[in-house]
Design a protein around this nucleic acid. Structure first.
Lengths: 225, 225, 225, 225
DNA sequence: TATGAATGAGTATTCATTCAT
DNA sequence: GATGAATGAATACTCATTCAT
């Protein structure tokens, strides 16, 4: 007779670790981690929601009650896992950029390395990122922080390119850096099927595409417009 | 105590119209269309699966039995709708490319127009495309045809660029055309949130990005070697 | 962390039979009756709510789905049973009063017979009436119709006494009739523990009390002013 | 697939204070009182059982463990509250009768005052009495003491009337006194909805009914046989 | 062909009770 | 004595699918 709510309306996904009720110590902390890990494993095996709290209880060796003790419902458990993942991604990305910048004296060194390393980082997190993006589609408590995370990523990427601003041609250097970042991210994300039907050129095509992508961006950035 | 099947394992999504059991005539055909339209409407309103066959029955004024008479289950009804949509997209894309090619004497005319028109076509179909991509994530009966459709699109796009092969610099003209297509599609798809959390630069940024995208591709294609 | 709703908020207890979705015929009707009877039996055995829909399903040989097909939820099933009971009581009471009036030429005949027969009717329905009153305590969808039914009963009882208005002393004959009815009902209801801890004088005391009650009311009604 | 226990089978509700495990002193006593008061408050706000021990723990600032230290389970906590209430009622009723008797030289003074004052006492305790009677319905550990309390009340009421035995007509003075008490209590209880769907004549009707009730009883008591 | 009533497996959530600290 | 974190049984409700008519 009516529609389905599907996701609980509680906001969640608090700033750092996620929606867990309380930071714990000792046994409690261990049990909290077991349930999050069990949930992440099940989410990857079966999809975002296609697992039972019963399943988490068994896989993580925690009682159902315990889950509710920490996570105001299944939805928030899922969000917590996603929040954790976004944090990991943030951290890894930052580290990756630092490293690439350090090793790249010139823009011509930076761009291809950035493309390759960014692709690596994304690939490492791809499965859970897919789930995150999927979930963000209908869950504002995920899409909000998701967008925020994406913004930070964009800012970081563009800032890294601006380190080479002397080599960037034309007036609107910032616009160019931002555009390059967006195009790179979109292309990489697409190849990793981060939320899309991918023709996902397999193997060689994919490698070649990354090369061309770097070439294209480099040419674009340098071009005196 | 166990996992959930969620999607029936029957393959489907036959090449043209979809998974419907039989070509029909007269009344039957009308009822088939009513159920497909009702399903599409409900899919858009509520999401891929968050509607009931009861809902379809009411909205489309068809009996549940009728649905099973044509569609071997809910999943196949959904797949049929998606197949229809992919067909529409194929058709629109082809028409769009023809038109753009016709109006563009040179590559410098073609690229920006292609970006703009392709964005238009995608935007028109964005909501249902989002659903398609979402579903393709776990349903091979959708991801298969989805990939095929994407391939055709890529082939068409690259072929169109190859019309201006004289203007494309360097050796690997095909690789360049294909890469340009992929990068364009990835960027547009991302902006339309086709399956991803989008930082989705709103408004101006998005317009500017499309301009830069065209600029970048044009430069890349023309560049010797 | 919060209160409990406990009873669904849907209004129900429609005028005659109750909250059942549709009057049926043949098999459907039989199954509807089986589930109502099973529910009534379980309500009496275990109390208003202390039974499972699973229980009803087994006892009545109906699927859970069927119950939901007719009764928008467990609450409404209970209400439907109660509605049926209130109807039965209404009918029996009306018949009882007609009979008593017919057999009682004078007020002195009527009052004791009315007390005795009313006690009989109430006793016959006592167990389910107890449940009704209990439930009415927190369920407006029951207390409403319950009050209405009580009003009708009061009106009937007082009207019957007014047939002997010539024998009623004083001015405010209506007030006296109404008061007598209320006092009779209250006393009988109390003895049947219709909703109260009863010291419930057992056996003789109870018989004696009814006699005294009749005596008292008769004296009161006849008394000039 | 099976029945529900719902109320623990342990008998309780010891004669005076209730089911608490031990007489206490100092801090312990204070905590005992806090949990009883919290329980009473919650019972009134939400109904007999619709509160959590968690709630009591918060509202009374006592640990759940403490509750179990005193009360062998939730049921016994509830019973203890009820026992306390019955004691209060007993005390108030006794005081009320003493006062009325003192101020009433003759039966004609006593009866109306008794009706009015008894109504007051009952009204004051009505909410919690409702809960008591409700609970007595399925909990023998409440209905037992409840009946005992009712008996004491009846004995007290009848004894008070017997102080005016000279004015009571006929032989069976005791029977009359007892009957009058019962009828008065039943009528008052009904008006206060002590456990019943009340047509609860509101306002004036209720006042008038009390007057008529007194009139009726007085006439009955005085009437020579 | 067409119908739509019947089925019943599957799951999130609550809360009295226990017991390690 | 006191605590409150952990436990897990228990239950209403949904909806894809079937099949008698």
């Amino acid at each position: 007779m009516s529609s389905k709510p599907k996701t609980s309306d509680r906001p969640a996904l608090s700033s750092d670790t996620g929606a867990s009720r309380k930071p714990q110590q000792g046994r409690s902390l261990a049990s909290l981690e077991r349930m999050q890990q069990a949930a992440e494993k099940l989410m990857l095996e079966r999809g975002n929601e296609d697992f039972t709290l019963q399943d988490v209880s068994h896989a993580g060796n925690v009682s159902i009650g315990s889950i509710y003790l920490r996570f105001d419902g299944k939805d928030n458990l899922v969000r917590s896992v996603i929040a954790t993942v976004l944090n990991r991604l943030d951290r890894d990305e930052t580290a990756m950029i630092d490293e690439v910048v350090k090793a790249a004296p010139a823009l011509a060194d930076f761009v291809p390395r950035f493309v390759a390393s960014f692709a690596d980082v994304l690939r490492r997190h791809a499965p859970i990122l897919r789930l995150t993006m999927q979930r963000a589609e209908h869950d504002p408590a995920v899409s909000g922080p998701g967008k925020a995370s994406a913004h930070r990523s964009a800012a970081r990427g563009a800032a890294a390119m601006m380190r080479y601003r002397a080599e960037i041609g034309g007036r609107k250097k910032e616009l160019k850096a931002m555009s390059a970042y967006h195009i790179i991210f979109a292309t990489l994300a697409r190849e990793l099927s981060l939320g899309s039907t991918g023709e996902s050129a397999s193997g060689n095509d994919w490698k070649a595409l990354k090369r061309e992508l770097a070439t294209m961006c480099l040419a674009y950035l340098r071009h005196p417009d």
